[in-house]
Design a binder for these strands. Structure first.
Lengths: 206, 206
DNA sequence: GTTATTTATTGATTCAAATCAATGGATTGT
DNA sequence: ACAATCCATTGATTTGAATCAATAAATAAC
């Protein structure tokens, strides 16, 4: 009958090999279920992020606002985890907005609960380390992509790696994720489809 | 008489409160001293970074090479720690060069030694987590700076926060750290000094 | 189903920064 | 001390992407 904690439990067990049912039930007691409607904000600049959220269903986004222009840093979909990790860790105000692109349900672990886990649940420090390391690796890859690849290369990668995202998210948000204007992304797309059309009709290529 | 491990010992004790002399001497046995001469490379793209290095003295730099153009990601000076952390953690080939800007001596912890510490020295997991978290916060701030600030703002910040670096590093490397060409940085500098000159001579401002 | 609003596309124009080019200054090596 | 190389500055030109503007398509609201 739709246990809200089913998916998040599977998720935490998968990355926490030594977790047992007793530890889990102590941990689960501290989890918080929240729902957000499309168009609302989960976090705004100036607020301190106080939780790490597993997404049961839905879609959210993080972005900077730089003189009126949105710069999207990430999209997060169901069955994954999001946070403003920098604000969460440093206990300092966020620079990012987090807004809700589709009605969303999350399961939150707040900061104190995580500290509780670190003190009381075996191996949780190791899990915390591994998670921090994984997030570092991800951020580092995103960084390298922004510095080394063209917007077109990034777009093609998104097409391949997250094709569903392209369908669920307005194009101007994808553009701001790629680091270009909506007009520029539109031109990138037409360039790509033109190239593909030529490849198909080009007999001289063989 | 210049114990090479003096500074690195102080460093590790400062971030590892429960470290004791016994643990330290077990750990110290595994440390490796290395020297590099100016102009050489510590790491090249394709190689896996296998250590975390404390700098006894010297200056090194990490950079991407994108169609012949250098993009500096970081400078590291004496008494600090550097690594290609992404490569080190993921055990995958580096995308970065690390080169030596001044003759440098480092104390290395290699990957296996760190795993040894995690298994055998109490609290080391927690230290590993805190370090990973701090590095995440730093990378995140660098990221935000590249997305939100102008090259001029970044230059002024470097001037304030790392004035010695400006003196020790060629300007074209600083330019590539700020994300502009050497010519552009030169113009930024002349713009700034012109503004300062105007401020000093401008009587109408009061 | 129709209207209204938002989003995407396309073209024309503007602009900021890169490139190109030349000179002068600084540093390095012998 | 000298030559040679490297680096920084300045000006002229080019270029790629942003902006501006208008239209078309898609989506949402009624």
């Amino acid at each position: 009958m739709g246990d809200k904690f089913e998916k998040v439990k599977t998720f935490y067990f998968s990355l926490w090999p030594s977790l047992n049912e007793d530890n889990w039930s102590a941990f689960e007691k501290r989890l918080i279920v929240k729902k957000y409607e499309k168009g609302n904000y989960i976090l705004r600049p100036g607020e301190v992020c106080n939780c790490i959220s597993f997404i049961n269903y839905g879609l959210v986004r993080s972005y900077y606002l730089v003189d009126g222009r949105e710069i999207t840093t990430n999209f997060f979909v169901e069955d994954s985890v999001f946070s403003n990790y920098q604000s969460f860790l440093s206990r300092t105000p966020s620079l990012l907005y987090t807004d809700v692109l589709e009605d969303t349900e999350v399961i939150d672990v707040d900061y104190d609960s995580l500290q509780y886990a670190y003190e009381n649940i075996p191996d949780s420090e190791r899990v915390g380390r591994l998670v921090a390391e994984q997030l570092y690796i991800l951020l580092s890859a995103r960084n390298a992509s922004l510095l080394m690849e063209t917007p077109e290369q990034r777009y093609i990668k998104v097409l391949q790696e997250k094709p569903d995202l392209i369908r669920r998210v307005p194009q101007y948000m994808v553009a701001s994720y790629l680091g270009v204007t909506p007009e520029a992304l539109s031109r990138i797309r037409s360039r790509i489809s033109k190239r593909n059309a030529e490849l198909l009709s080009d007999t001289s290529s063989r």
